[in-house]
């Protein structure tokens, strides 16, 4: 489908007055892997949104325990007779909420500190030091400690994951913003009396915006993995389902040694989301880079 599109549009060069964003979108659209991955992510968002329409919230006990996949239960049932498909669908919701919310928070902190470090010379050393030190530490055990202390809930998970994910964003944003602060237009803005805040939000922020787009996707997919990790260790929200929690249940009940369907489907969901996120960000980077995009 995309191939035929390419062959019909390729001979005509894009008009020169196209905005950079439009050029990027044009190039992105031609990448089947990128488009496919974007479609997968959108589909998962849709599943998360309409979860109540797709399946009943899995609760209580069923009679059919540990049944392999069948017409009635396409993903089989778990040790308490609950439908695994319903768990995966409702898990999509929580995994998505936590992924997006914590990546939003982490990006907010990360971008603010990254730009601040690049712009304010005096703050650069302490912020960079903080980032280096936090990146060197084993994050998962620290998240476990905090999540266990505060008590597991969706809010706890969002805050804890965000709290330990921003340094990565700061590091990338800082290095990108640093190259921009040396450009003449920033000096010019300062010369005509632009306030620091104005320069940072109007000149530095737009310059790092493409990096932020990639960061949102990658941070969100890493957040989904962190959530799955914490839930797998028993720190998930007790009230709701998530992909990690399905794995935790299978591990705790011993179902993972007898029922492959209890662990395979949530695992595939995690893998599909993370692979799609990676491919989307690669495709976006390629589409944005004039060297790799063909027009």
């Amino acid at each position: 489908m995309t191939m035929t599109n390419t062959s019909t549009t390729a001979p005509t060069l894009p008009p020169a007055d196209l905005k950079p964003a439009q050029r990027t979108w044009r190039a992105f659209r031609r990448n089947p892997l990128g488009m496919g991955s974007a479609a997968v992510i959108l589909l998962m968002v849709l599943v998360a949104l309409i979860a109540p329409l797709l399946a009943e919230f899995p609760s209580g006990y069923g009679i059919e325990i540990l049944m392999p996949p069948s017409a009635a239960h396409p993903f089989g049932t778990d040790d308490l007779g609950r439908d695994v498909l319903a768990q995966v669908i409702w898990g999509t919701r929580i995994s998505m909420i936590i992924g997006f919310a914590s990546s939003f928070l982490a990006i907010l902190i990360g971008v603010a500190l990254g730009i601040l470090a690049a712009y304010a010379k005096r703050l650069d050393a302490p912020i960079s030091m903080l980032v280096d030190v936090s990146l060197a530490l084993p994050v998962l055990p620290l998240m476990i400690l905090v999540a266990a202390l505060v008590g597991p809930s969706v809010t706890t998970l969002v805050v804890v994951i965000a709290l330990f994910s921003w340094p990565e964003v700061t590091r990338i944003v800082r290095s990108q913003a640093l190259s921009v602060t040396r450009l003449p237009y920033v000096d010019a803005a300062r010369t005509i009396g632009g306030s620091h805040f104005w320069i940072m939000t109007r000149h530095l922020l737009p310059a790092v915006a493409p990096i932020i787009v990639v960061s949102v996707v990658l941070t969100a997919s890493r957040a989904v993995m962190s959530e799955a990790g914490l839930s797998f260790l028993g720190l998930g929200d007790p009230e709701s389902w998530s992909w990690g929690k399905i794995l935790f249940n299978a591990q705790r009940s011993g179902a993972l040694t007898v029922a492959w369907w209890c662990t395979l489907f949530p695992s595939l969901a995690i893998l599909l989301l993370v692979v799609s996120s990676t491919l989307v960000s690669i495709a976006y980077n390629d589409a944005r880079n004039p060297k790799t995009r063909e027009n």
């Binding site: 997919s221 993995m225 799955a228 990790g229 797998f232 990690g244 794995l247 299978a250 591990q251 993972l256 040694t257 492959w260 662990t263 949530p266 695992s267 995690i270 893998l271 993370v274 692979v275 996120s277 990676t278 491919l279 690669i282």
Partner: peptide, 28 residues
């Protein structure tokens, strides 16, 4: 790309189930 996206428990369970349980090559 797929390898970087692997969730450690998923991978562990897969190896445990196939090589440990089904084939019985390794203790679980």
């Amino acid at each position: 790309v797929v390898g970087q996206s692997l969730f450690v428990p998923s991978l562990g369970i897969l190896l445990l189930y196939t090589l440990g349980l089904m084939l019985g090559w390794f203790p679980i």
